[in-house]
């Protein structure tokens, strides 16, 4: 039992500064404190330290500008992808045909790839920006971000699990949400915890990529209206090239510009901060 307490105490100690962590864990080892007292002591210290960090404005800014607005958006987009992908997969494996009509299989695959890649990019970039903007409260804000993403991602997915829990396909949306949101977000947090400062050399391409892949993901969401309209006239399914030529397929992108700006916001803010700090350091050197 004692190893469980000490394991939790070690896990919690990651929220401390490395020097303090070393001293406290050393004290536990010397005092042979391996029971609940070690965990209680560590919890008390971490809570006191975190409470001290929240006296500044940065953690609150990150909470208000990144955690609270972006986690529901990621959850919603992930739901959309998961629940859209799920019936297609079931129909494909059980009957060998696509669930929807009006969009070609190649276009469906492209849509899935764009949206999954966009979600991975947004999740990673948001978590990375979150960690970089509030280093000292990284784990408090990070855990809250992951928990909110998980809640918003799976709450509708659980409905399909409850109905169809006997089929392995029912779990697809939840597994996919984990793969395209939670896992990349966790990797982004870890990356920000390891790197002391960001390099504009790769933040610029990342910001550009976030906009491009995000634009493609929202554009694909407009395909269905165009495809259904085409299908209702008895025409064959639209391919990628034909969809690109349809003006009504672009409407979804225009209507989601605000969401796109919100989801790309953290990485753009990071880019702006980095560029400004590099300019300032160049001026001070000159």
């Amino acid at each position: 039992m004692s190893s469980v307490w000490i394991w939790f105490a070690h896990a919690l100690s990651r929220a401390l500064d490395p020097v303090e962590r070393e001293a406290v864990l050393g004290d536990f080892a010397e005092l042979r404190m391996t029971d609940g007292r070690a965990l209680k002591g560590m919890l008390g210290l971490v809570v006191r330290r975190q409470a001290g960090f929240w006296k500044g404005w940065q953690p609150w800014f990150v909470l208000a500008a990144v955690v609270l607005p972006i986690s529901p958006l990621l959850g919603e987009q992930s739901n959309r992808l998961g629940l859209g992908f799920f019936p297609n997969l079931v129909m494909w494996f059980q009957h060998g045909i696509s669930y929807r009509t009006g969009v070609s299989s190649a276009a469906l695959l492209a849509e899935f790839c764009f949206q999954a890649t966009a979600l991975i990019t947004w999740s990673w970039a948001s978590a990375f920006a979150l960690g970089t903007l509030s280093r000292r409260t990284l784990w408090a804000n990070g855990v809250l971000f992951l928990v909110l993403c998980a809640i918003f991602s799976v709450y509708r997915g659980l409905y399909s699990v409850r109905i169809l829990w006997l089929t392995p396909w029912a779990w697809t949306p939840i597994v996919m949400n984990f793969l395209v949101v939670l896992l990349p977000a966790y990797c982004g947090l870890r990356k920000s915890a390891k790197s002391r400062r960001t390099e504009p050399r790769w933040v610029i391409p990342l910001a550009a990529w976030t906009w491009i892949i995000g634009g493609l993901a929202f554009w694909t969401q407009g395909w269905y209206d165009a495809a259904y309209d085409n299908w209702s006239h008895g025409a064959p399914a639209l391919g990628l090239f034909q969809l690109a030529q349809r003006a009504d397929a672009w409407e979804a992108l225009v209507s989601h510009l605000f969401t796109l700006a919100l989801l790309s916001g953290p990485i753009l803010y990071l880019l702006a901060m980095d560029t400004a700090s590099h300019r300032l350091s160049r001026i001070s050197r000159a």
Binding site: E20, E22, A23, L25, G26, D27, A29, E30
Partner: peptide
């Protein structure tokens, strides 16, 4: 920060 000791699992003292 002081020197690490074996008794403390190789960790330093404050």
């Amino acid at each position: 920060m002081g020197k690490p000791t074996e008794e403390r699992g190789g960790r330093s003292k404050r």
